[in-house]
Amino acid sequence: MFLEARSLVKRYPGGDKPALGGVSLQVGKGEFLAVAGQSGSGKSTLLGILSALALPDSGSVLYRGADIVPAGEKARNRLRARDFAFIFQHHHLMPYLTVLENTLLPFMNQIRPISGQWKEKGLRVLERVGLGHKARSRPGELSGGEQQRVAIARALARDASVLFADEPTGSLDSQTGSGVMDLLKELNRGGLTVIMVTHNQDYAALADRLISMKDGVIL
């Protein structure tokens, strides 16, 4: 299995019930999975653990057959740098970097300047998401939909295998949200595995598979 969660349990300090109460899940390569549920159902916690941004209290997450939970900080960093990409409800772009720099942020962790080849690729993916002309703009100069597309371009620039999307349309109007969803669907058709958390039933229906969560368990 491409990505698999086994009996994930997660408790937050002070919480009387677990955020995840033994969740198991399998995701195939190139699948578009939507995770729906009310606020507090545990869907974002599940996404965080699947994407190696957070660790469960118990259980395991297997990516291409290897458990990423005990793999250590370095291995999880490598996954986030190469294989996993994220888009968030509030886009989370670096406000003082340009659109192109935000797109190429995953490669900017070395003192050595990144090559022109990567810059060209950054510009290409920005063209693909319709923002080639805004490469030198700052996130504050873009609309909400454009900012979200920069976050998607950031995922595309490094050829990630899995895109984790946490309410990607949550802060957008319906027209802009539809545009972002069309883009996600198109990328999925190109082979990108997408795991998306959403409230929106219409957008969830665009996925290959929909799972619903309540009180930390999959219904």
Binding site: L53, N77, A81, R82, H92, M94, L105, P106, N109
Partner: peptide
Amino acid sequence: RKEIGIMRSVGFSRRH
């Protein structure tokens, strides 16, 4: 903290 989170989410290590 949010910026740090963004950098960590795209693969920046603690050393970075």
